[in-house]
Amino acid sequence: MQLQQATAAGTAVRKPGLGRILQDTKYVFWREMLLVIRDPFSLIFSLVQPLVFLALFGPLLGAAVGAEAFGGESSLQWFLPGVVVMIALFGTSMTGSNLQYELMTGSYERILATPLSRSSLLIGRALKEWAPLVLQGLVIALASIPFGFVFYPLHVLFGLVVIGVFGIGLGALSYALALVTQGKEWVFWGVQQTLLFPLMILSGIMLPIEAGPRWMQVLSLFNPLTYMVNAERELFAGGLGSDTLWGVVAAVITAVVGLAVGVRVIKRSTL
């Protein structure tokens, strides 16, 4: 009874639970998306970038590496899913960088003082970095059709969902990194860049890892990104098999680990 009176007029005290997390995630995601909606130019640039990569790197790849390295596919069919994973990697690993601005002003603290659930802060922000990928992925897939790319819409959509789950985990880790490096922004960039490139090269995004030495192939097995890339390649080629399954497993593990670490870091300082 007493609690009821203490409640602010017009707002209900909200019960915790999964529904609450989903709803809060929606709000956090929507707030982040307002940045894109109010300033759509950033989206246009983000569409151009992967196209440039595909147009300039794709042909070089086909010429430099023999066709047999791609398992008989066209180099475009092989390379395009890699580009999609790469955009997701760059985007979601930067989740923490947008947070850095809010950490410097009081805006992050203001949001921490609201009843939003902690995991929704992580998921909502990571999803915002993933959301443009849906558009980017579809645009580059469509743009590639005239060059011999075969488009399987449902497979591609499922592929984007899988990479989204992976992105939630990576975004949450990036968020946690921004929090622990608070006040030392260069450390964030140092760590992010240092981890990003080995992960990317060892996943076979750019060049087939099968062409590399044995030790690289072994290392790549411990890289969750490898499973993402393999899954996307299978899906973008219209397949649905063990590579996809392993990709889903890797994505879910990354998401669970990322969220666990992220929530832990948020709760390390606040309640």
Binding site: L35, T105, A113
Partner: peptide, 17 residues
Amino acid sequence: RSRIGYIGQGNGGGHSY
């Protein structure tokens, strides 16, 4: 948190919003 309001030392509005 759902029962209180808090106005911190810093500015609460996100810069680009």
